[in-house]
Amino acid sequence: MSMHGPLYAILGGGIVADILLWKDKKSAAAILLGSTALWFFLQVLEYHFVSLLCDTLMLFMAVGVLWCKFAGRIFNRMPSEINIQLPQSTCIYFFGTVNWFLLKFCEITSGKNFKILFVAMAGLYMLSSIGTYISSLNLLYTIILSVGTLPALYARYETQVDAIAARCIGVVKNLCKLFEVKVLDKIPRHRKLN
């Protein structure tokens, strides 16, 4: 089954969709392995983030110096000059996303739409409640793992997942009807007389 379906379009149809649907296997695996390693160091080994960041940078600096000094002797090739820069489009996208988030936050907090305000506050309350029982790092890792694997699994088993989801929706509808008949219909209501 081709992965260029509606899910590919929903995910943006570009590099992000390729990674989330595992069309770019190297990048998807690198992201999951990197996040797993970060989680392992911070959660299991109880490494502190600043220490891990500094030690990692020192390791990369040492490897870079060794590569620049000895690559020509060992591999008979001259090392290229190291130049790492983020593309300007990445920075524009990042700050555009931050600005969109701030705009939505101001829009919600203005109180013009109380339904959205209530939903946002309820969602934040649920996240806060979950946060008291689960470590933030474990929650973040679970989200990254889910985002990195679930879209690809859904694309692969789309028909089976849709069939199970349809059955679950049917069960929920039946439970709602049962609740309405057994509970809501028995509540006396005031009727207006003409």
Results as ranks from 00 to 15, higher is better:
residue 84 I to Y: 14
residue 101 F to W: 09
residue 106 C to V: 04
residue 98 V to Y: 02
residue 140 L to F: 11
residue 102 L to D: 12
residue 137 L to K: 02
residue 95 F to E: 12
residue 125 Y to G: 11
residue 148 G to T: 09
residue 77 R to G: 03
residue 152 A to Y: 10
residue 89 S to T: 15
residue 143 I to W: 06
residue 161 V to M: 08
residue 102 L to M: 08
residue 64 G to V: 09
residue 89 S to R: 12
residue 114 F to D: 10
residue 115 K to H: 08
residue 113 N to V: 07
residue 160 Q to S: 09
residue 116 I to C: 02
residue 87 P to G: 07
residue 72 G to A: 04
residue 80 S to P: 14
residue 83 N to R: 11
residue 104 K to C: 05
residue 164 I to W: 01
residue 137 L to D: 01
residue 130 I to V: 15
residue 95 F to H: 05
residue 73 R to A: 15
residue 102 L to H: 14
residue 107 E to D: 15
residue 106 C to L: 12
residue 149 T to Q: 02
residue 163 A to C: 07
residue 114 F to S: 14
residue 159 T to C: 03
residue 121 M to L: 13
residue 62 A to R: 05
residue 169 I to Q: 12
residue 79 P to N: 01
residue 101 F to E: 01
residue 96 G to R: 08
residue 154 Y to I: 02
residue 59 L to K: 13
residue 138 N to G: 00
residue 158 E to A: 13
residue 163 A to D: 10
residue 134 I to Q: 10
residue 116 I to Q: 03
residue 77 R to I: 00
residue 155 A to G: 11
residue 145 L to P: 03
residue 152 A to T: 04
residue 146 S to D: 00
residue 89 S to D: 10
residue 156 R to K: 15
residue 72 G to D: 02
residue 74 I to G: 03
residue 128 S to P: 01
residue 82 I to R: 07
residue 116 I to H: 09
residue 104 K to W: 11
residue 133 Y to F: 12
residue 158 E to D: 10
residue 110 S to Y: 04
residue 113 N to Q: 06
residue 70 F to M: 07
residue 158 E to G: 01
residue 69 K to Y: 12
residue 96 G to I: 04
residue 114 F to K: 15
residue 159 T to S: 07
residue 119 V to T: 14
residue 157 Y to M: 02
residue 58 M to C: 08
residue 149 T to Y: 10
residue 152 A to V: 01
residue 71 A to N: 15
residue 160 Q to V: 08
residue 151 P to V: 09
residue 68 C to A: 15
residue 140 L to D: 00
residue 58 M to I: 09
residue 121 M to K: 14
residue 117 L to G: 04
residue 71 A to P: 01
residue 131 G to A: 08
residue 139 L to W: 02
residue 125 Y to E: 03
residue 83 N to S: 12
residue 116 I to D: 08
residue 141 Y to P: 00
residue 150 L to C: 14
residue 166 A to G: 05
residue 76 N to R: 13
residue 61 M to Q: 05
residue 98 V to T: 03
residue 167 R to F: 14
residue 120 A to V: 10
residue 97 T to P: 00
residue 114 F to R: 13
residue 61 M to W: 06
residue 146 S to A: 13
residue 125 Y to D: 01
residue 100 W to V: 10
residue 66 L to N: 03
residue 81 E to W: 03
residue 118 F to L: 13
residue 75 F to G: 07
residue 134 I to N: 00
residue 86 L to M: 12
residue 122 A to T: 14
residue 128 S to Y: 14
residue 150 L to G: 05
residue 127 L to T: 05
residue 157 Y to W: 06
residue 137 L to T: 10
residue 100 W to N: 10
residue 60 F to K: 03
residue 63 V to R: 07
residue 118 F to S: 13
residue 93 Y to F: 10
residue 148 G to K: 11
residue 107 E to N: 09
residue 120 A to C: 10
residue 86 L to A: 14
residue 123 G to P: 00
